[in-house]
Computed example of a mutant assay.
Amino acid sequence: MNTSLKLKKLAGISVIAFATMTAVNSASAANWRYAHEEYEGDVQDVYAYKFKEFIEENSDHTLQVFRFGELGESDDIMEQAQSGILNFVNQSPGFTGSLIPEAQIFFIPYLMPTDMDTVIKFFRESEAINEDFPKLYAEKGLELLKMYPEGEMVVTVDEPVTSPAEFDNKKIRVMTNPLLSETYNAFGATPTPLPWGDVYGALQTNMIQGQENPIFWIESAGLYEVSPNLVFTGHGWFTTASMANKKFYDGLSDEDKKLIQNAADYAFEEIITHIDGLADEALAKIQKASDKVTVTRLNEEQIELFRARAPQVEKKFIEMTGKSGEALLDQFRKDLAAVTE
Rank of each mutant, 00 (worst) to 15 (best):
Q204K: 06
D291G: 14
Q211Y: 15
T176W: 14
S26L: 15
T294V: 05
D330N: 15
F167E: 10
Q331A: 10
Q209R: 01
S74K: 13
E125I: 02
T233Q: 07
V199S: 08
E143P: 02
G41E: 04
I55Y: 00
E182Y: 07
K258I: 03
P134G: 11
K121Y: 05
V199P: 09
S227V: 06
E53H: 07
K285V: 08
K170T: 03
N31C: 02
N87G: 01
E182V: 12
E127G: 11
P193E: 15
G201N: 14
L278Y: 04
N299M: 07
A284M: 00
S83F: 03
G41Q: 04
A244N: 03
T62Q: 12
A189Y: 00
T20R: 04
N245Q: 02
Q91M: 12
G322H: 04
R309E: 13
F216Q: 15
S92T: 08
A30L: 05
T296I: 02
N31A: 10
M21P: 03
K292G: 10
L145R: 01
P149G: 07
E314N: 07
Y266L: 00
D76Y: 00
Y249N: 03
L142M: 06
M147R: 11
N262Q: 04
Q261H: 12
I218E: 14
D280G: 03
K6A: 11
S83E: 08
S59N: 02
F122A: 02
K246R: 06
A241N: 08
I120N: 10
L7S: 08
K285W: 05
N58H: 01
H274Y: 08
K52P: 15
N299V: 04
Y148H: 05
K121I: 06
W196A: 15
P134V: 11
L10R: 09
I215F: 08
K247P: 00
R67S: 05
L329D: 11
Y224S: 08
A337Y: 13
F187E: 03
F306Q: 07
I77M: 06
S74Q: 13
P164W: 09
P134R: 14
L5D: 13
R173T: 15
G210S: 01
V199A: 10
L298M: 05
E125L: 02
K52G: 10
F238H: 11
D115Y: 04
V154Y: 12
L203P: 02
Y137R: 04
E57A: 12
A289L: 12
T190P: 10
I215R: 07
A17I: 04
L63P: 01
L63M: 12
E255F: 03
W196M: 13
P214K: 06
Q211F: 15
T233D: 05
I16Y: 09
A186N: 09
E281C: 03
T176F: 14
E73A: 04
S92G: 14
G141D: 09
Y34E: 07
P160C: 05
F66M: 00
N213E: 15
E301A: 11
E53I: 07
F317S: 13
I85M: 00
A11W: 04
A48T: 06
Q204R: 09
